[in-house]
Write a protein that binds this DNA or RNA. Structure first.
Length: 283
DNA sequence: GCTTGCGCCTGAATGC
DNA sequence: TGCATTCAGGCGCAAG
C-alpha cells in the first residue's frame, strides 16, 4: 500500500519526469477518479489543459502537482500508481486517467485497481491546497512540531496505533508502517495514548522516522528512470519488514514468533515479547 | 472537537 | 468446477 515512503518515491520520480512540462490533454477514463471534483471529469480535463506543472509537492500520502497558482491533487488510495512511459504504449487495464504533454514525450497514467485513489483540482493550491489543510504535517517535514505532537497525542483517549493512523494528528503512516514503527519502539498497538510519557512519544517518533528513512532509501533503489513504479507487495518491502505480514515467523530482535491480532476489522502484527500487553492493565 | 464505525472498491484466496 | 464469502485498507462522512 502506498504510504509515505512510496508516495515520496513517486514524488521524486514525477519531479524528474513531469515537472516543467505543459499539459496537452487530460483524459478521465473512469469517472470515480474525479469523484471529488464537483464540476465533473470534463471540467477537470478542461481546466488543466495548457497548464505548466511546477515542482511536485507532498504531505503525508498526498501529492500535488502545482499548475500555475493552482494544483492537481493526487491520492493513490490503496492501489494507485502514477506511471510515466511511452505515450504510444497500449492502455492497460485499470488506467483511470491519462495526461499527455505538449512536447509529445512520455505521458502520465493514473492506474488504480480498487479506485480508492483520486485526482482533484485545487484552486489556488500551489503552496498547500485547502482540500488537504486538515492533514497534519508528516514527521519528515521541517514544519513538524515534535512537542506539539506529543501534547496532542497525549491528550487523546485512544490507542497508540489508532492515533498513528489519524492523518490529522500525524500524516503518512498507514497500517504497515504503524506496525513496523511500534515494533521498533517496543510498544503494543493498544497502549493508551493518555498514558504515554513524553519520552515514549519521543521514542515512537524516532521509530517512525527511522522506518520511513530506511524505506525511502530502499524505494529509491527500485526506481526506474522512465517508469515511476511503486509496488507495495514486492521488491524492497518484503525484505525490510520486521513484523508486518510475518505471522508465525521469528521476531528479528528476539526470535519469538510474530503474532497477528484483530484491530479495527483488520490486522495488527507484533512481537508478543518485545511488545507485551501487560496483564494488570498498566503500561 | 473528539471518537468510532461504515461504505466504497476489485481481485486473490479460501470455503463449500 | 463453480459459485459465494472473506480479506486487504485509506479516506470521507455521519453519528454519538
Amino acid at each position: 500500500m502506498p504510504e509515505l515512503p512510496e508516495v515520496e518515491t513517486v514524488r521524486s520520480g514525477l519531479q524528474a519526469h513531469i515537472s516543467g512540462r505543459t499539459i496537452a490533454s487530460v483524459q478521465v477514463l473512469h469517472p470515480r477518479v474525479a469523484r471529488l471534483h464537483p464540476a465533473g471529469p470534463e471540467d477537470l480535463a478542461a481546466i488543466l489543459r495548457g497548464g505548466r506543472i511546477g515542482d511536485i509537492r507532498r504531505r503525508g500520502k498526498y501529492l500535488w502537482l502545482p499548475v500555475g497558482a493552482d494544483a492537481l491533487i493526487a491520492h493513490l488510495g490503496m492501489s494507485g500508481q502514477l506511471l510515466v512511459g511511452d505515450p504510444d504504449r497500449p492502455l492497460s487495464a485499470h488506467v483511470r486517467a491519462r495526461i499527455t504533454f505538449t512536447d509529445g514525450g512520455t505521458d502520465l497514467r493514473f492506474v488504480d485497481q480498487r479506485t480508492f485513489g483520486h485526482l482533484t483540482f485545487a484552486p489556488g493550491g500551489a503552496v498547500l491546497p485547502d482540500a488537504i489543510a486538515h492533514i497534519a504535517p508528516d514527521p519528515l517535514e521541517p514544519d513538524f512540531d515534535d512537542r506539539r505532537f506529543a501534547d496532542r497525542i497525549r491528550a487523546r483517549r485512544t490507542g497508540v496505533k489508532r492515533a498513528l493512523l489519524d492523518q490529522t494528528l500525524i500524516s503518512g503512516v498507514g497500517n504497515i508502517y504503524a506496525d513496523e514503527s511500534l515494533w521498533r519502539a517496543g510498544m503494543h498497538w493498544a497502549r493508551p495514548t493518555d498514558r504515554l510519557r513524553p519520552v515514549d512519544v519521543g521514542r515512537l517518533l524516532a521509530a517512525v522516522r527511522a522506518v520511513f528513512a530506511s524505506a525511502i532509501e530502499a524505494g529509491g533503489t527500485s526506481f526506474d528512470s522512465l517508469y515511476v513504479h511503486v509496488n507495495g507487495e514486492s521488491g524492497y518491502f518484503d525484505r525490510s519488514l520486521a513484523v508486518y505480514g510475518r505471522v508465525g515467523e521469528p521476531c528479528p530482535r528476539c526470535g519469538t514468533p510474530v503474532r497477528r491480532e484483530k484491530f479495527m476489522n483488520r490486522s495488527s502484527f507484533s512481537c508478543p515479547r518485545c511488545q507485551p500487553r501487560p496483564r494488570d492493565g498498566r503500561w
